[in-house]
Write a protein that binds this DNA or RNA. Structure first.
Lengths: 325, 325
DNA sequence: TTGTAAGCGTTATCAT
DNA sequence: ATGATAACGCTTACAA
């Protein structure tokens, strides 16, 4: 395959001139530029970008770490990231980690190996200390609140958002509230559970340990939760459920079993996913798209600044009132 | 940041020896190897992979082109790809194209620029001729049947599969069948519509133009389809719907409106997605996961062979009988 | 406006 | 078993 030297020789110019044409530098006469362009066309030449990356020290690529691409929560954030990356002519390299530290480390190692210019961590199993180590090799941003670390973050205050959701339910008069939690190891799940238990205690609400249902991540988990709810001697008046798709599964199964919603059971979802609109689920909009977009904008800026300072951006949230509460 | 030269100097060996240690070559004495290893540790050294890519002419990365990551159809294929890529220690670069030719070309250009070793095209808006041009720069495989071209393919016979679905419905006694089609431009949609219309004609089934519903890609589209079905003066006895999530939307909305399924309306889905199991939707399993896995295995083999020949692999399919037909 | 030559950080070749 | 040295294909001082 042709290289820059060959183009230079055939066009009767130096490699520098060819490089200038390639990079749209000024100070190239029209004659030479045309000659170069024509030769390039003729030989079907393109640059070997590996050589460019080597000499420039940049790759124009950013990696994104997330556990599952097929989870709505993450795909919405991903859309935000992708949109901004496109605007900046950047490439996104996706890493579906399944929360495997090993996979996540691999991506951070890519940063170290100079294969990418930065890393966006949407959700991780990694300890903040580990991430912090890698900031030495390039900019990193997380979509989780990890305190004011040496890397940036765009995040939702899960604690406050969850409490607001609970307040909304008690405001509607519900005095016993169950909770379908998402992935047990998920960083947000831990926070939300704390918010939940504290809220229950503060407001002296009724509570049974079986109202706390763990590891609900799919429609089927929601359906299973509905079934176990039905078998309880004491059932909560309301359920708060992270993920509208899980809420959807619960609602469908509960209705199939003859429960009226919100009459017999109120359901509040989280994350404002498309299925939620279909089933008219009352939910919490976490602005996930904007989260992705902001994350990319920040890391892009950091890639291009000399000594970037970490940025901490807190996103807001709001309840979407529909008809399941 | 430290480079190989520095390591060599500090360890008191040549760069060649360092390189040998780095690549686990034989013929390095234990003494020197240990010295090198220790220096590497000490300086926190890693290779600049751009230099490696440049000299070796390989990158260990394969790009995947698909229109939408959040569509179940594609995410299942993606899972198959990802699993195999992991086994082969390959990196996957994801391109969400939205069926924009421009975006897809960008990826093919990466192949030309030597930034990736191969391309897996899951679904594309590109003409086969264009893809064929790029085979000059490296192996390409599609997950669509495009005839026996200069690039490989793993594909489902959408025509035959769709007809089998229709036969299943007529076998159950339904004599009027409507069809919710997926994305209008989707390559499979075109094929399936042909199969549909031909089947209707061959079997002299009842048919109204309004039973053919276009561009159904989401749960909400399915719900909307249910609503328009309800308004028809003549309603089909059965619906065949590409995508179980679309079928789910239709079923939920239809039942909400008092329709019994399959009593008043039989529904057959396609693609065997998780939601289909929850709602007990009778569907067609297209082996999408296996499709992704096979695609990667083939391209991986081609990357490592001198003069690769195109491979054409046809996948089978089967009906999963549940309770909506 | 143009060209020469020195890198970038590796691996490959070919000695010894 | 080890090491010079030449690639790989490009950008960028620096000189003219």
């Amino acid at each position: 395959m042709a290289n820059i030297k060959e183009i230079a020789r055939m066009a009767g110019v130096s490699v520098t001139t060819v490089s200038r044409v390639l990079n749209n530098h000024p100070y190239v006469s029209k004659d030479k530029r045309d000659a170069v362009l024509q030769t390039i066309e003729q030989l079907d030449y393109t640059r070997n970008m590996n050589a460019v990356h080597l000499i420039t020290g940049r790759t124009g690529a950013v990696a994104v770490i997330l556990p599952y691409i097929h989870a709505f929560y993450f795909s919405i954030i991903m859309n935000g990231l992708a949109h901004e990356a496109l605007l900046s002519q950047y490439r996104l390299i996706l890493c579906q980690s399944n929360y495997l530290e090993e996979e996540e480390i691999k991506v951070l190692e890519m940063l170290r190996h100079k294969e990418i210019d930065g890393v966006v961590i949407v959700s991780t199993a990694l300890k903040p200390e580990i991430i912090e180590e890698y900031t030495a090799y390039g900019p990193i941003i997380t979509c989780q609140d990890s305190g004011e670390r040496r890397y940036s973050s765009v995040y939702i205050e899960h604690y406050a958002a969850f409490k607001q959701g609970l307040e909304y339910l008690t405001g509607k008069g519900y005095r016993s509230i169950g909770y379908c939690e998402g992935r047990r190891n998920g960083s947000s799940a831990v926070i939300r559970q704390t918010a939940y238990r504290e809220f229950i205690a503060e407001h002296q609400l009724a509570f049974e340990e079986e109202w706390m249902i763990y590891d609900c991540t799919t429609e089927e988990d929601g359906a299973a939760a509905a079934l176990s709810l039905l078998k309880m001697s004491q059932r909560p008046e309301a359920m708060i459920i992270t993920g509208d798709h899980v809420a959807a599964g619960l609602i469908i199964e509960a209705r199939r079993s003859g429960l009226s919603i919100p009459g017999d059971l109120a359901v509040m979802g989280f994350d404002n996913q498309p299925i939620g609109r279909l089933l008219q689920i009352t939910t919490m909009d976490n602005h996930l798209y904007e989260m992705g977009a902001a994350a990319f904008r920040i890391i892009h800026e950091q890639i291009h600044s000399e000594r970037p300072e970490p940025v901490y951006r807190k996103l807001d949230y709001r309840i979407i009132e529909r008809s399941t509460v």
